[in-house]
Simulated assay, not measured.
Amino acid sequence: MTATACTGSSGREYAVPKAACGVQVGSELLSPLLPDGEKLTQRDYKFGPTQPRCELKVNGNLVVHFSGDVVPASTDVIAVNERGMRGLGHSEAANIGQDSRIADRGALAVDSCTYGGKQQKFVAEIELKHQAIQDVSERRDALRSLLKAYLPAVMTYVGCS
Rank of each mutant, 00 (worst) to 15 (best):
K148V: 02
V64T: 04
Y150C: 03
R139N: 02
I96Y: 06
S67H: 06
S137W: 02
R101M: 09
S112R: 13
A19C: 08
P52H: 05
A103D: 10
T4Y: 05
L34R: 01
V63Q: 09
K118P: 05
L34E: 00
Y45L: 08
A103G: 13
V25H: 09
T4I: 04
S145G: 15
E138M: 07
V110N: 11
D44T: 08
D76Y: 06
G11P: 07
A107V: 01
A94R: 10
K46G: 14
V58E: 00
E13G: 10
T156W: 10
Q98G: 13
D69L: 12
K121N: 13
Q119M: 10
E55Q: 14
R43A: 15
A109H: 10
D135P: 05
A153I: 10
V25M: 09
A20G: 09
A149V: 04
P152Y: 09
V64I: 15
C54K: 01
R144P: 04
V123M: 11
K121F: 09
Q51Y: 14
S27A: 13
V110Y: 09
T7R: 05
L143Q: 10
V154W: 01
I96F: 08
E138Y: 06
T156A: 15
C113D: 08
T156F: 10
S67Q: 10
Y115F: 15
S10C: 05
K118F: 03
P32A: 05
T41E: 12
Y115M: 12
Y115K: 14
Q119C: 06
D36G: 01
V110P: 09
P17R: 03
A142T: 00
S74E: 15
S161L: 11
P49S: 13
V136S: 07
L34T: 00
C160N: 12
G159E: 14
G97D: 11
R83N: 12
S161I: 07
L151H: 06
A73V: 08
V64R: 00
Y115R: 12
Q98V: 07
K118V: 04
A124F: 09
Y150A: 03
A142N: 01
Q24Y: 05
R12T: 00
M85Q: 09
